[in-house]
């Protein structure tokens, strides 16, 4: 029944106008949002907590203080910093797939003793009420001074030193944490085994 008087070109024209309007709207919406600068602040605060460092609360001062303690080694999805005071301590921010979206973890690793010093979740989008409990203090505590010579392992009930309790009902999230940490550990091993280069001051908060 539909009339064919209006051709393909007009239809395409309409679609393109619509697409342009949508694209402009998208860009405006994206530009209107503040940057995610606060996120790196979370990382710095977490680093302070893990390594028991007193970092100032004011962002600029905190970044400066952080740079006094750590030097950046790699960037990308797995970022590494080496401690300037204790060269066997590495700080690692690792990103990986969580259950729904990416999650980012920050942990400190003692390369000489092969132990994780502490771990914090910086960014996560896990199921509210289940998976997001990886952000709780009780979950962090398991990683304090954890043996990680042969990687960490998720278990329903922890028996060995390198194991941590899976959160009941959130197996996928727990396994994601396991995968992300183990992948990052492998990376640290590779970089740390190579002779640590001279401290080039390249700061990246």
């Amino acid at each position: 029944m539909s009339g064919k008087t209006v051709g393909f070109r007009d239809e395409i024209k309409f679609m393109l106008v619509l697409a342009t309007v949508c694209a402009v709207l998208l860009l405006v919406a994206r530009a209107g949002v503040g940057s995610r600068a606060d996120l790196s602040m979370v990382a710095i605060t977490s680093a302070g907590q893990i390594c028991k460092l007193e970092l100032p609360e004011e962002p600029v001062a905190a970044v400066a203080a952080f740079n006094e303690h750590f030097v950046s080694r790699t960037r990308g999805r797995i970022q590494l910093w080496q401690s300037l005071s204790r060269s066997n301590v590495w700080l690692c921010q690792a990103r990986g797939a969580g259950m729904w979206a990416e999650l980012a973890l920050l942990f400190a690793y003692d390369h000489m003793h092969r132990r994780i010093i502490g771990m914090r979740v910086i960014e996560q989008n896990e199921t509210a009420g289940l998976g997001d409990r990886i952000g709780e203090e009780a979950f962090y505590e398991q990683f304090d001074d954890m043996d990680a010579g042969s990687g960490v392992e998720m278990k329903a009930i922890r028996v060995k030193g390198n194991q941590f309790d899976a959160i009941s009902g959130a197996t996928i999230t727990s396994r994601a944490v396991e995968t992300v940490i183990n992948r990052a550990l492998g990376q640290i091993e590779k970089i740390a085994s190579a002779a640590p280069p001279a401290a080039g001051k390249e700061a990246r908060p």
Binding site: L25, L26, A29, R30, G32, V33
Partner: peptide, 8 residues
Amino acid sequence: IAVEQLLK
């Protein structure tokens, strides 16, 4: 996407 950015 607009609503998402707004919420963020």
